[in-house]
């Protein structure tokens, strides 16, 4: 109908269209065993919180009591509970972790490509690689694909050795590099047991790809504009940051999002109910070079 008309659809036309597919909220809520009014009120106030008219703390204060009454033990959120907005105070906030299911990995290297596209790493540098090892001889052999991002260790050897404290562990578990402080001594690269760090030799794809230098990835949330010869981060060490800039806007790391077999899981390891925590507790779970005591935050499922 609208496709054939000359005029464009107006917003109210969209609402009319939507009314046909969106079920009536009252009817749906009536099927739930829980209080419908509470849900609707909370939805209304949640919109206020998003618009900035209501503080999240006030929202929790208003609803906490009724939520406990309604849901009892299952209610696990509240103003004192971890939330992304309260990550400034010590010890709270998510502790990011990744689980990679090697049984699901097909070795397609999509993660490597999407990482390269997302972080716009120069030639010769890749924050994520897939290591392929072949065991046995034909016809009795097996191939293991091991996708390898930065392990974001809890005891990072790279942080131990950095002479300038340019690389350090953040509260959310990510090991980051302050490229403005890094002197480019590459000691961390020698110290990393996983070979996860790369040095920016100042190469560029500009010759093959016009405009490559025009955009850089906002690593760690810092917009550096164009990639210029001799400007940071050139001649410093770079590494995977679990796509910190994407996390900041509520997105998953690029490799997790694009994985075709859903072999990668990403989430909050400090939350025992999160998918990653549950998977990390599985008997299939192992970490790379566990014996070194680096405590990686990337867990593999064998």
């Amino acid at each position: 109908m609208a496709i054939h008309s000359k005029s464009y659809l107006q917003p109210e036309d969209y609402s009319k269209l939507a009314d046909q597919f969106v079920p009536n909220s009252d009817k749906v809520l009536a099927t739930s065993p829980y209080d419908s009014e509470l849900g609707k009120n909370m939805a209304r106030d949640a919109r206020k919180v998003i618009n900035g008219k209501l503080k999240i703390e006030d929202f929790h204060r208003v609803y906490s009591a009724s939520l406990i009454k309604e849901f009892g033990d299952q209610y696990a959120s509240g103003p004192t509970e971890p939330g992304r907005n309260s990550s400034t105070s010590a010890g709270t906030g998510p502790k990011w972790g990744m689980v990679i299911d090697l049984k699901k990995c097909v070795g397609c290297d999509t993660c490597t490509v999407s990482c390269k596209a997302e972080n716009r790493t120069p030639p010769g540098m890749s924050y994520n690689v897939v290591l392929e090892t072949i065991k046995g001889d034909y016809p009795n052999f097996s191939i293991t694909n091991l996708p390898k991002p930065c392990m974001q260790c809890d005891n990072p050897p790279c942080v131990q050795v950095c002479p300038t404290r340019a690389t350090y562990k953040m509260e959310n578990g990510i090991v980051i590099i302050d490229n403005d402080r890094c002197i480019g001594c590459r000691y961390c690269m020698v110290a990393c047991p996983y070979g996860s760090r790369s040095y920016d030799f100042g190469n560029s794809y500009e010759q093959e790809m016009v405009g490559y230098n025009d955009v850089t990835s906002p690593e760690y949330g810092i917009e550096r504009g164009k990639r210029k010869k001799g400007a940071v981060p050139e001649e410093t060490v770079r590494k995977c940051s679990f796509c910190y800039h994407r996390l900041q806007r509520g997105e998953e790391p690029a490799c997790v999002e694009t994985c075709i077999g859903d072999a990668r899981y990403f989430g909050d390891m400090s939350d025992p109910n999160s998918v990653v925590s549950k998977l990390a507790a599985s008997p299939r779970a192992f970490r790379l070079k566990e014996e070194l005591g680096t405590k990686p935050r990337v867990v593999y499922l064998r």
């Binding site: 942080v159 131990q160 050795v161 950095c162 002479p163 300038t164 404290r165 340019a166 403005d180 402080r181 890094c182 002197i183 480019g184 001594c185 590459r186 000691y187 040095y199 940071v232 001649e235 410093t236």
Partner: peptide, 19 residues
Amino acid sequence: DIGRPDHVMNAVIYWNVTS
């Protein structure tokens, strides 16, 4: 061997005691 000679004083200013 240091990549950024302009940052080199950071090694003196920001002393990492474990390094």
